[in-house]
Computed example of a mutant assay.
Amino acid sequence: MRLITWNINSLRLRLPLLQRLIEEQAPDVICLQETKVPDPLYPRDALAELGFPHQLYRGMKSYNGVTILSRTPLEPITGTPDWCGREDCRHVAASIQTETGPVTLHNFYVPAGGDIPDPQENEKFAHKLAFLEEATAWFRANPPQRSILVGDLNIAPLEHDVWSHRQLLKIVSHTPPETTRLTEWLHAGFEDAMRKAIPEPEKLFTWWSYRNRDWKKSNRGRRLDHIWTTPDLLPGLKTINVLSPMRDWTSPSDHVPVMMDLAV
């Protein structure tokens, strides 16, 4: 299975980039975040023409939105929470049949959390922490097996997941309250496949701000996008690639795709 996860930052706007990505990389499964399209306007036909007739999506106007695209049939996973009691389209899950049995795939878009890393002063940050805690509790109560979790988790948890650990410790996405909670969620049944394939101390980034005039020269990145697998799938991990050249494509997302090859 070749799987790609990407915060596309508007599916309809960047459909041509998605087409080029598919042509160049030939993935079997694609998980997108920040699709920013309500379900009635979702481009089903265009995506089917790109080779992905099997689609599962939750979307809303202007914000959030997640989708799973597959060349083979998807079976929706039901019974997952509406996280934090909000209908804000941040999670979709499906079962995919493989030669060795079904694999469960979770696609998440975690709240960004605003700019102030204080839950008392910033409701968005409080929401982010609550989301992480609820997700951790749910996976502990529902231990995953043969599962993959991907998405824009909006946290760079490790020292070498950011351009400067010291300078970003008080910046939302790398603060201890976030990184600690994300690690607890990871330990609710998963392994960090990206860091298994590309261990520290190698720097590993998936996001570069639009504010950087020359993202490559400054290289002030963060690893906000993740691929986790349960331990039973980890022996099948072949490669992980961060497709950073896409950051130079015309009208790019500020995130780049992450691609995993997994024997299942």
Results as ranks from 00 to 15, higher is better:
Leu13Asn: 14
Leu13Gly: 10
Leu15Glu: 09
Leu15Tyr: 03
Leu15Met: 14
Pro16Arg: 15
Pro16Glu: 15
Leu18Val: 02
Gln19His: 15
Gln19Asp: 15
Gln19Leu: 12
Gln19Ser: 15
Arg20Leu: 12
Arg20Met: 03
Arg20Ala: 06
Arg20Glu: 12
Leu21Arg: 00
Leu21Val: 05
Ile22Asn: 00
Ile22Phe: 00
Ile22Met: 07
Glu23Met: 13
Glu23Phe: 13
Glu24Cys: 10
Glu24Val: 07
Glu24Leu: 14
Glu24Tyr: 07
Glu24Gly: 06
Glu24His: 10
Gln25Ile: 08
Gln25Cys: 08
Gln25Arg: 14
Gln25Tyr: 03
Ala26Lys: 13
Ala26Leu: 11
Pro27Gln: 05
Pro27Val: 04
Asp28Gln: 09
Asp28Tyr: 03
Asp28Ser: 05
Asp28Trp: 01
Val29Leu: 13
Val29Gly: 02
Val29Met: 04
Val29Trp: 04
Val29Ile: 06
Ile30Val: 15
Ile30Gln: 10
Ile30Asp: 10
Ile30Arg: 07
Cys31Thr: 12
Cys31Asn: 07
Cys31Ala: 14
Cys31Lys: 01
Cys31Phe: 05
Cys31Tyr: 02
Leu32Ser: 08
Leu32Gln: 05
Leu32Lys: 02
Leu32Pro: 00
Gln33His: 11
Gln33Lys: 09
Gln33Trp: 13
Gln33Val: 11
Gln33Ala: 13
Glu34Tyr: 05
Glu34Thr: 12
Thr35Ala: 10
Thr35Glu: 09
Lys36Asp: 01
Lys36Leu: 03
Lys36Phe: 00
Lys36Thr: 00
Lys36Ile: 01
Lys36Ala: 00
Val37Trp: 01
Val37His: 02
Val37Tyr: 04
Asp39Ile: 10
Asp39Ala: 13
Asp39Phe: 07
Asp39Ser: 11
Asp39Tyr: 08
Pro40Asn: 03
Pro40Glu: 03
Pro40Thr: 02
Pro40Ala: 05
Leu41Asp: 15
Leu41Glu: 15
Tyr42Ala: 10
Tyr42Thr: 07
Pro43Ile: 06
Pro43Gln: 07
Pro43Lys: 04
Pro43His: 03
Asp45Thr: 14
Ala46Trp: 06
Ala46Gln: 13
Ala46Leu: 07
Leu47Gly: 15
Leu47Gln: 12
Leu47Lys: 05
Ala48Ile: 11
Ala48Trp: 11
Glu49Trp: 10
Glu49Lys: 15
Glu49Phe: 08
Gly51Cys: 01
Gly51Val: 00
Phe52Glu: 10
Phe52Gln: 01
Phe52Cys: 06
Phe52Gly: 01
Pro53Glu: 09
His54Cys: 01
His54Glu: 04
His54Asn: 05
Gln55Arg: 04
Gln55Lys: 05
Leu56Ala: 13
Leu56Gln: 06
